[in-house]
């Protein structure tokens, strides 16, 4: 078993869809994609965002560009101009997911 940091094998981009945040994670190669596909389950991502994401997590696979797209529902404090959050659009949440460490 060895521990790797997600940020060493992937990058990504996040943004808002109403009160949901979309977090896209893109692996740098096919090997990295196999790792994120196996380890970034909806349960794992939901737990990672405990205290941030208060709704369900949906996951979509995009093997063509080695990417996974996550929808984090009930995450942005109401979203748009309703939200009191400094990051009301979830722009920094891709970086937050890349903080994760994975045992492989």
């Amino acid at each position: 078993m060895s521990k790797i940091k997600l940020i060493d094998i992937a990058h990504g981009r996040s943004g808002d869809k109403g009160d949901a945040a979309n977090v896209g994670i893109v692996a740098y190669d096919d090997k990295g994609y196999e790792i994120i596909k196996k380890h970034l389950t909806t349960e794992r991502v939901k737990k990672h965002f405990e205290g941030i994401c208060f709704g369900k997590v949906e996951r979509f696979e995009m093997p063509n560009i080695c990417a996974l797209n996550f929808l984090l529902h009930n995450t942005l404090g109401g979203g748009g101009t309703v939200s009191l959050k400094h990051d009301a659009q979830g722009k920094t949440l891709a970086a937050a997911l890349l903080k994760m460490e994975i045992e492989i």
């Binding site: 981009r13 943004g15 893109v26 740098y28 979509f60 995009m62 990417a67």
Partner: peptide
């Protein structure tokens, strides 16, 4: 490919 891939992920829901 990396810069374009990131933009493809921008504010999408179900990619299909």
């Amino acid at each position: 490919v990396d810069t374009v891939s990131e933009q493809l992920m921008y504010e999408i829901g179900d990619p299909t």
